[in-house]
Design a protein around this nucleic acid. Structure first.
Length: 109
DNA sequence: AGAGTGACGTCCT
DNA sequence: GAGGACGCCACTC
């Protein structure tokens, strides 16, 4: 096994674990922090995303992967994650940047 | 080495 | 806001 790969995976999962309840982040944001590309982050989650709150990781536009749609919605309802009537997460309110864990109340300027 | 695929992103219509 | 097309990065056949 390539140790670099395991470390990369560990870094991705670490970011996901740090996501506060009721907030979400995107694959691209994680990729921007841990490196690689958004697709690679998704691949890591697919294979090693078991023990982490994967439902707090959504696409850049707030839409959920068909694979997780059902599960994630219940999590959001339980955590109070702001969602749109169309079924997508309100990124403007719920987005949390892994590069800025200080939580600056994501004021969207 | 080349082509196909995926829990994605951005631009355009 | 919704849908389609092209591009990126890494992995697998």
């Amino acid at each position: 096994m390539d140790p670099a790969k395991e470390e990369y995976v560990e870094r991705v999962l670490s970011c996901v674990e740090q996501i506060p309840p009721g907030r979400v982040t995107t694959y691209g944001a994680i990729a921007a922090v841990v490196g690689g590309g958004p697709r690679q982050v998704g691949s890591v989650m697919a294979h090693h995303g078991g023990p982490v709150p994967w439902w707090r990781v959504v696409r850049a536009d707030g839409s959920l992967p068909p694979s997780h749609d059902g599960e994630a919605r219940e999590r959001y309802a339980a955590e109070g994650t702001p969602c749109s009537s169309t079924g997508r997460v309100q990124m403007r309110e719920a987005f949390w940047d892994p590069a800025r864990p200080e939580d600056e109340v994501e004021r969207i300027s």
